[in-house]
């Protein structure tokens, strides 16, 4: 894992219960408000959101630096490109 030690996110967005592709659009808009190099924490539901959103984030050029299973959902840390 890259820099396993505590990465403190600069911003957070909880997308549990938000469907595709709105969850990706919300992530994208949030990232647009941030500076390059900053880290966004995204909470996603398992299933379709976890299948689609990380892939789209990668296509936009951002870096997913951590993926973590939390109760019934996943926590992603994204470093803005």
């Amino acid at each position: 894992m890259v820099n396993e030690e505590k990465i403190i996110p600069d911003d957070k967005i909880d997308l549990r219960g938000v469907l595709c592709p709105i969850n990706f659009v919300k992530t994208k808009l949030k990232l647009e408000m941030m500076d390059a190099g900053q880290v966004l924490e995204v909470i996603l539901d398992d299933g379709e959101p976890l299948r689609s959103v990380p892939r789209s984030i990668k296509e936009e050029g951002h870096k997913i630096i951590k993926v973590e299973n939390i109760e019934n959902a996943y926590r992603l840390l994204i470093r803005k490109a």
Partner: peptide
């Protein structure tokens, strides 16, 4: 690989 398991999630 950093062991994130996203590939396993992505594979349908």
């Amino acid at each position: 690989c950093n062991g994130c398991t996203l590939c396993a999630k992505a594979c349908q």
